[in-house]
């Protein structure tokens, strides 16, 4: 629909062979901090350079506080 696509929280993939892997995967996939305030999130520049950005944004005001390339 628009230039950027929202992907949500940047979560680290847990270690699949760790003893508590099921619990960690559950937490990584399903639980969210969902803060009211600064939020770290991934955006995909779908209709643009197709790069991934890591954006810091205030969820109360939509102010973008910073952005960097996600790969870095």
């Amino acid at each position: 629909m628009s230039e950027f696509v929202y992907y949500g929280d940047p979560v680290q993939r847990p270690d699949p062979v760790a003893a508590d892997a099921p619990r960690r995967f559950y937490e990584a996939v399903y639980l969210r901090d969902n803060p009211a305030g600064p939020h770290e999130e991934l955006w995909y520049h779908a209709n643009g350079c197709r790069g991934w950005l890591r954006v810091s944004r205030d969820t109360r005001t939509h102010d973008v506080l910073g952005a960097s390339f996600a790969g870095k």
Binding site: R57, T59, R60, T61, H62
Partner: peptide
């Protein structure tokens, strides 16, 4: 489409 508490 993105997290928000702005009600706007």
């Amino acid at each position: 489409g993105y997290n928000s508490y702005a009600q706007r």
